[in-house]
Design a protein around this nucleic acid. Structure first.
Length: 491
RNA sequence: GGUCGCGUGGCCGAGCGGCUAGGCAAAGCUCUGCAAAAGCUUCUACUCCAGUUCGAAUCUGGACGCGACCUCCA
């Protein structure tokens, strides 16, 4: 039985889909105006796990993750410019060219991380007419007002019937006192009101026609609209980074209720932030590390290049609701640990059971329990770190079987079969880890190994060392076991 | 200033009333031409103070420290 932490209740709840076996999940995707960084990776990997695990449980999941390609304002005082337009000006490109460029680059990075593509990836710019209709519906329900060509959501009015702040746990009355007077807010009736449609300043490039003005949609509206279009009014899971809880998700929720007068998402899932050496990641702190910089080792804070799988594994070792601190030491440890699990998976595929049993009941039970614990860990709010710890225990056993320290026939055939399929299933399909340097067992590699064996027999140790060296150059290592010579990924 | 969350061994990180994960690093052993890999062993922590309890890293109160959000952000 799957339990997930619902931000709405701040508790772990039993996961019960609205229309099993179907599950609808909406996750806030990137605003495509720059390269993806580690925060994007964490969010994408977190919900990739949710997607993969729900499918493993047998659900038919429709996973919608948007691409925000409508520029939102850089900040309130800078009322004329949006992020994408700003970037377009900077790089001398058409705004849509910027959006496409970074969408492609985002896809590329996510592919490297072995993040599955969502079922539907809608773009905000492709849903302008739907957004206009949705805003009109909110206006018709009197939860919004027009002011100088812009449309604002009336938070106070909304709060009278519904409750603004349920998701983020905010008390609207406190916020009214606490909120600062910002420049350019005089069009709003209340500082907490937010734009549904914004009239474009003359220099604003990205603009569309609407009943109210030539302008562009507000930041929050696209998600309410697109989730509604592809998943219906009331759907199962809405996810995103914790920083989006307020105001983004709170406002999405308000819009949806103001428009449809019904529930919105049943479960809200939020992944926590990434810090670098204990500090918040931010452009001004110069610790804003993009994925490409990490993979290439080109950022000045990185002592080495870390592969996509190293990052993925590292993200998975921690629980998604806690902050994740990235450092060289931590990444190096993850690299080694991940290879260990990978090597065990390869050895497992070669293990064979002889069909004869000299059953060791205790050992057999241990393996069975570990295998079962894998599901239990994932069922407990996607606890990938615990699942990985069981995988390590299993890897240890696999190595012992392989080295014949333990006898593979001392577990029964059925347990062996489950071990063989399940370890790989969790490693590859659910956690989404994979071999990166796929090594073909090609003639050249085989020749190297036989050369090594011959040299060993002849005690020509110079040659032996040379073989080791060339293996190392390929990222491999040679292992002399009691029974044979074999290769493995260098740890 | 307001709201929320967190402080775990050399490091990263689970756990959330008793059974004291896991990984990395370090040390020793087995194996070995030397290694590597693998296996075995060792290292025993919960910011501080006060309380609740037979029993607390886990619950309550307080202090200190850190972070997030309140403004664009995954």
């Amino acid at each position: 039985m799957l339990q997930i932490t619902n931000t709405l209740s701040r508790k772990k709840e039993k996961f019960e889909p609205l229309n099993a076996p179907f599950v609808g999940m909406y996750v806030c995707g990137p605003t495509v105006y720059g390269d993806a960084h580690m925060g994007h990776a964490r969010a994408a990997v977190t919900f990739d796990i949710v997607f993969r695990y729900l499918k493993y449980l047998g659900y038919k999941v429709r996973y919608v993750r948007n691409i925000t390609d409508v520029g939102h304002l850089v900040n309130d005082s800078d009322s004329g410019e949006d992020k994408i337009a700003k970037k377009a000006k900077l790089e001398n490109l058409e705004p849509m060219e910027v959006a496409q460029l970074y969408t492609n680059r985002y896809h590329n990075d996510m592919d490297k991380l072995n993040v599955l593509r969502p079922s539907i990836e809608p773009r905000a710019s492709g849903h302008i007419s739907e957004q206009i209709e949705y805003i009109q519906a909110i206006l018709d329900n009197h939860y919004a007002y027009i002011s100088n060509g812009s449309v604002y959501f009336d938070v106070k009015k909304y709060h009278e019937k519904y409750h603004y702040g349920t998701l983020s746990g905010r008390v609207i009355e406190d916020m009214m006192h606490g909120s600062r007077d910002l420049e350019g807010q005089d069009q709003k009736r209340n500082p907490l009101d937010f734009a549904l449609w914004k009239k474009a300043a003359p220099e604003h490039i990205m603009r569309w026609n609407s009943p109210w003005s030539e302008g562009f949609p507000g930041w929050h509206i696209e998600c309410s609209v697109m989730s509604n279009k592809y998943l219906g009014k009331y759907f199962d899971i809405h996810g995103g980074g914790m920083d989006l809880v307020f105001p983004h998700h709170e406002s999405e929720l308000a819009q949806a209720q103001a428009c449809q007068d019904s529930h919105f998402a049943k479960y809200w899932l939020h992944n926590n932030m990434v810090t670098i050496n204990g500090q918040k990641m931010g452009k001004s702190l110069n610790n804003f590390i993009t994925l490409d910089e990490l993979f290439e080792g080109s950022h000045e804070l990185m002592e080495d290049a870390y592969s996509p799988m190293t990052l993925r594994f590292y993200i998975l070792q921690a629980h998604y609701r806690g902050t994740l601190d990235v450092s060289n030491a931590a990444l190096k440890a993850a690299k080694i640990a991940y290879r260990k699990l990978l090597n065990a998976n390869i050895l497992l595929s070669k293990l064979e059971h002889d069909n004869v049993e000299t059953l060791d009941v205790e050992l057999n039970t241990q393996v069975e329990n570990l295998l079962q614990s894998l599901d239990e860990a994932m069922n407990d709010d996607f606890n990938t770190g615990i699942a990985i710890s069981h995988l390590f225990a299993l890897a240890n056993l696999i190595n012992s079987f392989h080295n014949k320290i333990k006898n593979i026939n001392s577990i029964n055939e059925q347990t062996f079969d489950v071990l063989k399929t399940k370890y790989d299933l969790f490693f590859s399909e659910i956690l989404g880890l994979k071999e990166e340097l796929v090594v073909n067992v090609n003639p050249a590699l085989e020749a190297l190994i036989s050369l090594y064996k011959q040299a060993k027999v002849a005690k020509e140790y110079d040659k032996v060392d040379e073989v080791r060296k060339s293996m190392k150059a390929m990222g491999l290592v040679i292992k002399d076991t009691k029974f044979d010579v074999e290769w493995a990924y260098e740890v």
